[in-house]
């Protein structure tokens, strides 16, 4: 499990990056919890199988976590509610990206690297999450 620290190479730069990462993750969890609680009530927050925050995380399968033997792109019951979302839509270029701002597209490309060939998405510059606008043409991240 412990591969997040595989990139550790010492120095304060890593410590600061890790600190920011933790901070953002915690903030996101707080925002999500608050929103879901206000809009759906405690039913969403108190579910069987949620990890105890003080316990060490078990293997990647948590008891109670919805799991399917089917390919993920057919799995409607993991996140998307059954019958609502056609997760296996076959769209070459993610339309969701075309609905986003240019800055958001750059953020995605920065992280997960969408294939650019044949795509209508053209990323010419990457906005870094820490230093917006600071890095240009960082295409190795989107390859």
């Amino acid at each position: 499990m412990g591969n997040l620290m595989d990139i550790f190479r010492g120095g304060h730069e890593f410590s600061e990056a890790a600190e920011k990462f933790l901070q953002q993750d915690s903030e996101a969890m707080y925002v999500l919890t608050d929103t879901l609680n206000k809009n759906f009530g405690a039913e969403v927050l108190h579910q069987a199988g949620l990890p105890d925050m003080d316990a060490s995380i078990p293997d990647y399968l948590i008891p109670g976590m919805p799991v399917s033997e089917r390919p993920q792109h057919e799995v409607h019951d993991v996140i998307a509610a059954p019958g609502i979302a056609a997760v296996n839509e076959t769209v070459e270029t993610p339309d969701a990206l075309r609905q986003t701002t240019e800055g958001e597209q750059h953020e995605y490309a920065n992280v997960i690297g969408f294939p650019q060939q044949g795509s209508q998405l053209a990323v010419n510059a990457v906005v870094d999450p820490l230093q917006p606008g600071a890095m240009q043409n960082d295409m190795e991240l989107a390859g």
Binding site: L4, M29, A81
Partner: peptide, 24 residues
């Protein structure tokens, strides 16, 4: 999103969060 999807999203996010916190 509706209730069921909200529950699944929260569960996934909570486990992800737990992993990240634990690791770092």
């Amino acid at each position: 999103i509706e209730l069921q999807e909200a529950k699944h999203l929260y569960k996934a996010a909570r486990i992800y969060h737990h992993y990240v916190q634990n690791e770092l």
